[in-house]
Design a binder for these strands. Structure first.
Length: 697
DNA sequence: GAGCACTGC
C-alpha cells in the first residue's frame, strides 16, 4: 500500500484497475469485449470469463486486509453472483459462519440465489439460500451464502445486534440509498467497532464511493497506510451509448417524447425504444398520440408496437413488455421510473429520457408527504441511458440541453432526508439506539423531520417523554411490519375486541391497487367499486371487499368479475397472516366484534387521530385538519368522494397533486377525539405543544 | 369537486 497523498483507488499492480476506468465511466462510453458467447462452456469456464474474475485475487486481498471494501461495480461485471462465491471459496463460510448479500428488492434476492445455486450445482435452500418477507428459503445447518433484502437484515440485527452468524456482509446496490440501506450502513459501522473480525463489502456507483469511504474509514491520522477502507473499481460489460442532447430546451417533454420516438422510428435502424416519463397519465397521452401517428404512417416503415409500463398496470399487461416482437416490428415501451432499476427489458437500443421523475417529498411542518415532479439527477440520467447499451451499441436522447444536464444535482437526495421517519426511528429505538441525534447517519435527516417523527411516536405511546421505548407497546409496534399508526390500530383493536376486523383492514391498506387499473374500462371499474362501498368510509369498504373475497373462496374468477386485484388480495392475505402471527407471538387475544363498525372506527381513530379533519363551512368539500387547520380535500378514489361530505373524518395519508387530498378516509364522531385520544387533543394549544417538544428532545 | 413515482418489513 503506498502512502502517497491520494491512495483512494487501490493499484496493487499492472493487472489491477485504476482511475482510468473511473474516468471512462464518466464519459459513459465503455467499450468491452464480446457479449455472452459463453453459453455452451462449462460453468467454471463461464465464471472465469466474467469481467470480475480478473479482480478476484485483488478483491480477496482487500477483504482480508481491510475491514471495509468498496467495490465500484459496473453493470454486467458479475459481482453480485461471483463475489459471494469467491468469499466462500477462500473460507468465509467455515466455522459455522455465513456470507450475507443484501439487495434492495425481493426479486433480486430470489433470482440471484437461484443463479448462484445453479452455478454451484446445488439445490436452492441448502448451501445457497435466501430470506425475504413471506419466503424463508435457507437452512440453519447448511446455508453458507444467504441473499436477503436490506429490510430483512435490519430485522435480523434486532434479534442479533452484532450479527454473530456472519463473517462477511455484502451490501449490494448501496448507491440506491433507500432508507433501509442507509440504516443498514449506519448500523454496520456500529457493529464493526464491536466485531473486528467482521468484513463489509459495499457495492456502489462511482459517485458515492468517496462518501462511503469517508464514512467507514476510522483512520484519523494522515498516514494512509492505516486506512481501514479501500476502493476497488471493477469494469463491467456493456456497450457504448451515444448521448444526444437537445440544442434548445423543449416546452412539453411528453410531446417531445412522441416526436423523438417517431423520428427514431423513421430514420434509425431496427432496435427497440424505451422512453421514460413520470406517470401513468403522461404515458397514456403519449400512447394515444403514437397510435394515432402510426395509423396513417407510410407502409415503407417498420411496424411499431407501443406498450405502457407502470406499477399500477395489471400484471398481465405488464408482462407484454417482455415479449419479443416479430422481426418487422419495433417495440416501443413507455415507462415510469420502474424501468430505471426495478425491471430490465431486453433488446433496448434507444432510450429517451424526459429528464423528470415523480418523487416523494415530505413537509415536516405539516407532516404531509407529497408526490412532486422533479428533475432527475445526473446519476439517474446515466442509469437511464445505460439501459440502451445492454445488447449492442445504443443511443440515448436526453430531452434537455447539455448545459442543463451539467446543472442537475449529481445524485438524488437520499430517502432518509425526504420522508416520514417515524417507522425508521421506532426501529432504531428497538435496536437500542439511545441518542437519535448522535447516531452515525451516512446522511443526517433534517432535525424537523426527526422531531415530527418523535412527536408522533410519543403520541402513539411508543416512546415516553424521555424518548425511550415504552414497554410493552413500543416493542410490539416495532415488531410489526407496519407503519406505527397502523400498528397502534391493531393494539387498540386488542383492547376493544375487534382484532379479526383490524387485521384485515391493516393488511388491506398495505396493497396499492385494490382494484385493477384496466385502460378503457374505467367506468366498469367505478361501478364495481360502488358495490362494496360502506357509508362509514374507505376502511370499512376495504373490510367489505376482503370479506367478499373470502366468502367467494378467494377465487380468481370472483376477482375478475369485479375488477379486483387478485394478486394484491393474495398479498393482503399473507400480510394478514403475518400480522396475526405477531399478535400470537405476544400472546394477544384475537377476537371479532361481529361486524360492529362503530367499534372498528373507534380503533382506527386511536391509530390515526393525528390525521383528523373537520368539514369547513366555506366552500364545498373543503376540510381543515384539527391539528393545525391545514386545508385538505377528499381524494377522488375515496368512496366518500361522491357522497354528501361527512362532518368529521380521519385519514391514512395526504397525497398532493393539484390539491392536497386525503386518502383512505373514515367518518368519525368528534367526541371520540376527546374520549379516545385525550392525551393528544386535550392539551393541544400551541404553547403546550412547544413545551412538550422541548421536553421530548 | 376529478386522480394514482417506486420499493421494503
Amino acid at each position: 500500500m503506498s502512502s502517497s497523498n491520494k491512495p483512494r483507488f487501490w493499484k496493487p499492480g499492472t493487472s489491477a484497475p485504476g482511475e482510468d476506468i473511473v474516468e471512462e465511466r464518466k464519459s459513459e462510453t465503455v467499450v468491452t469485449s464480446s457479449y455472452n458467447s459463453n453459453a455452451s462452456l462449462p460453468i467454471l469456464q463461464q465464471r472465469e470469463r466474467l469481467p470480475i474474475y480478473k479482480y478476484r485475487n485483488n478483491i480477496l486481498y482487500c477483504v482480508e486486509k481491510f475491514q471495509t471494501t468498496i467495490i465500484i461495480g459496473e453493470t454486467g461485471s458479475g459481482k453480485s453472483t461471483q463475489l459471494p462465491q469467491y468469499l466462500l471459496e477462500i473460507g468465509y463460510g467455515k466455522h459455522g459462519y455465513m456470507i450475507a448479500v443484501t439487495q434492495p428488492r425481493r426479486v433480486a434476492c430470489v433470482s440471484l440465489a437461484n443463479r448462484v445455486a445453479d452455478e454451484r450445482g446445488s439445490m436452492i435452500g441448502r448451501e445457497i439460500g435466501y430470506r425475504i418477507r413471506f419466503d424463508d428459503c435457507w437452512d440453519e445447518n447448511e446455508t453458507k451464502i444467504k441473499f436477503l433484502t436490506d429490510g430483512m437484515l435490519i430485522r435480523e440485527i434486532m434479534n442479533d445486534p452484532i450479527l454473530r452468524q456472519y463473517s462477511v456482509i455484502v451490501l449490494d446496490e448501496a448507491h440506491e440509498r433507500s432508507i433501509q440501506t442507509d440504516m443498514a450502513l449506519g448500523l454496520m459501522k456500529k457493529i464493526l467497532k464491536k466485531r473486528k473480525d467482521l468484513r463489509i463489502i459495499i457495492s456502489s456507483a462511482t459517485l458515492d464511493a468517496q462518501m462511503f469511504f469517508d464514512f467507514f474509514n476510522t483512520n484519523e491520522t494522515e498516514d494512509k497506510s492505516k486506512d481501514t477502507v479501500v476502493i476497488m473499481p471493477v469494469e463491467g460489460r456493456s456497450f457504448p451509448v451515444d448521448i444526444h442532447y437537445l440544442v434548445d430546451p423543449c416546452q412539453n417533454y411528453v410531446k417531445e417524447t412522441v416526436n423523438t420516438i417517431l423520428k427514431i422510428h423513421k430514420t434509425e435502424p431496427p432496435g427497440d425504444i424505451l422512453a421514460f416519463l413520470t406517470g401513468a397519465d403522461e404515458i397514456e397521452f403519449a400512447l394515444t398520440e403514437l397510435i394515432e401517428a402510426t395509423r396513417d404512417m407510410s407502409s415503407k416503415y417498420q411496424k411499431m408496437k407501443v406498450l405502457p409500463m407502470h406499477a399500477s398496470l395489471p400484471a398481465g399487461h405488464q408482462l407484454k413488455v417482455f415479449q419479443k416482437t416479430p422481426h418487422d416490428t419495433r417495440k416501443v415501451v413507455l415507462a415510469t421510473n420502474i424501468a430505471e432499476a426495478s425491471i430490465t427489458i431486453n433488446g433496448i437500443v434507444y432510450v429517451i429520457d424526459c429528464g423528470f421523475v415523480k418523487m416523494m417529498a415530505y413537509n415536516p411542518e405539516a407532516a404531509i408527504s407529497s408526490l412532486v415532479i422533479t428533475k432527475v439527477s445526473q446519476a439517474s440520467a446515466v442509469q437511464r441511458s445505460g439501459r440502451a447499451g445492454r445488447v449492442r451499441a445504443g443511443k440515448a436522447y436526453r430531452l434537455y440541453t447539455e448545459s442543463d444536464f451539467e446543472k442537475l444535482p449529481a445524485s438524488q437526495t437520499p430517502e432518509m432526508q425526504r420522508c416520514d421517519l417515524s417507522p425508521a426511528i421506532l426501529q432504531m429505538k428497538a435496536l437500542g439506539i439511545v441518542n437519535l441525534v448522535k447516531f452515525d447517519y451516512i446522511a443526517k435527516p433534517p432535525a424537523q423531520n426527526m422531531l415530527q417523527a418523535v412527536e408522533l411516536l410519543y403520541a402513539l405511546g411508543a416512546l415516553n417523554n424521555k424518548c425511550q421505548l415504552v414497554e410493552p407497546d413500543g416493542v410490539r409496534l416495532a415488531e410489526m411490519p407496519l407503519h406505527p399508526t397502523f400498528g397502534k390500530m391493531l393494539l387498540a383493536a386488542v383492547e376493544m375486541g375487534c382484532t379479526e376486523e383490524m387485521l384485515t383492514i391493516a393488511a388491506m391498506t398495505q396493497i396499492q391497487n385494490v382494484f385493477l387499473n384496466v385502460p378503457n374500462e374505467k367506468h366498469k371499474v367505478e361501478k364495481a367499486k360502488r358495490l362494496f362501498s360502506a357509508v362509514e368510509g374507505d376502511h370499512l369498504t376495504l373490510l367489505n371487499i376482503f370479506i367478499a373475497f373470502d366468502e367467494n373462496n378467494r377465487s380468481q374468477k370472483f376477482c375478475r368479475q369485479y375488477y379486483l386485484n387478485y394478486k394484491g388480495l393474495l398479498r393482503a392475505l399473507s400480510i394478514r397472516q403475518q400480522l396475526r402471527n405477531v399478535l400470537t407471538k405476544f400472546k394477544l387475544p384475537i377476537e371479532s366484534c361481529n361486524g360492529n363498525g362503530r367499534t372498528v372506527r373507534q380503533c382506527i381513530t386511536k391509530g390515526i387521530f393525528v390525521n383528523a379533519a373537520k368539514l369547513h363551512h366555506t366552500g364545498i368539500g373543503v376540510y381543515k385538519t384539527v391539528k393545525d387547520g391545514h386545508e385538505l380535500h377528499i381524494h377522488p378514489t375515496s368512496v366518500l368522494y361522491r357522497e354528501v361530505p361527512p362532518q368529521w373524518v380521519v385519514f391514512n395519508e395526504v397525497v398532493k397533486t393539484n390539491k392536497e387530498y386525503m386518502q383512505d378516509i373514515t367518518v368519525i364522531e368528534p367526541e371520540w377525539l376527546h374520549t379516545l385520544t385525550s392525551h393528544y387533543y386535550q392539551f393541544g394549544t400551541n404553547r403546550e405543544i412547544s413545551e412538550k417538544r422541548a421536553k421530548i428532545c
